[in-house]
Simulated scan of single mutants.
Amino acid sequence: MRPRGVSGGKVTAGLLTGGMSFLATGFKNGKTGTEMIPVKSMSSVRTARDGFINTKVSVITSGNTVDFRVSHAEAAQVKSLLTQLILGTHPSQKSPRRAPVALAPTPALPQVDVMAQLAKLGDLKSAGVLTEEEFSQKKSELLERL
């Protein structure tokens, strides 16, 4: 029976496995979490290969950059979707076409009897309530309505 312990072969296998794992996933720094970013604050999206399996997607916002990893196969789809949302061309952002709203015709203003108004103005001028200037100004305003 062989003694149990750490052999050179086990150390080599462990290092190779760990190295392959690092190449595939990168360092894990323990910082995980979620962040909600409003679409209107996103300005661009970029992708970069990140190991054998993953692509890093960077979402650039006003004041921050958020990075996350997806598989190489998903990267193009994610970037396309985010770009459509940023540009406002995603189907979910299109408002349904509505029929134009018919405006009700505006009611006509009541016809002013200009002659009756002029007669009243003349009476007010004769009574001394209006000066000649005031009478002339009001008379001009009434005549412009015709």
Rank of each mutant, 00 (worst) to 15 (best):
M1I: 12
R2W: 09
P3R: 10
R4N: 08
R4F: 12
G5L: 03
V6E: 02
V6R: 06
V6Q: 00
S7M: 03
G9M: 06
V11A: 14
T12R: 14
G14S: 10
L15Q: 14
L15G: 08
L15Y: 06
L16S: 07
T17A: 15
T17S: 13
G18M: 10
G18F: 07
G19N: 01
G19E: 13
G19D: 06
G19M: 08
G19L: 14
S21N: 08
F22G: 09
L23V: 13
A24G: 13
T25E: 04
T25L: 13
G26D: 11
F27T: 05
F27I: 15
K28I: 11
N29M: 06
N29P: 01
G30L: 06
G30E: 03
T32G: 09
E35D: 09
I37T: 13
P38E: 07
V39K: 07
V39N: 05
K40N: 04
S41K: 03
M42E: 03
M42K: 04
M42F: 04
S43K: 08
V45P: 00
V45Y: 00
T47L: 03
T47W: 03
T47A: 07
I53T: 11
I53S: 07
N54E: 13
N54F: 04
T55P: 02
V57E: 00
V57G: 01
V59H: 09
V59K: 00
V59F: 02
I60C: 11
T61V: 06
T61Q: 08
T61N: 10
S62A: 12
G63W: 00
T65C: 09
V66L: 08
D67W: 04
F68N: 06
F68W: 05
R69V: 01
R69Q: 05
S71D: 11
E74S: 14
A75V: 01
Q77R: 09
V78N: 10
K79Y: 01
S80M: 12
L81F: 07
L81C: 05
L81D: 15
L82Y: 05
L82T: 03
T83W: 05
T83L: 08
Q84I: 08
L85E: 02
L85F: 03
L85M: 09
I86H: 01
G88D: 05
P91R: 15
S92I: 12
Q93M: 15
K94H: 07
S95L: 12
P96H: 06
R97H: 13
R97P: 14
R98H: 13
A99D: 11
P100D: 15
A102L: 11
A102T: 11
P105W: 03
T106G: 15
T106Q: 15
T106E: 15
T106P: 13
P107N: 10
Q111I: 06
V114D: 00
Q117M: 12
L118K: 01
L118R: 02
A119E: 14
A119S: 13
A119W: 01
L121F: 08
G122S: 15
D123R: 15
L124S: 08
K125M: 12
L130R: 01
L130T: 00
T131K: 04
T131D: 02
T131Q: 02
E133F: 03
F135H: 04
S136M: 07
Q137S: 12
Q137G: 04
K138D: 04
K138G: 02
K138R: 11
S140R: 05
S140G: 07
E141G: 10
L143Y: 10
L146H: 02
L146F: 12
L146M: 14
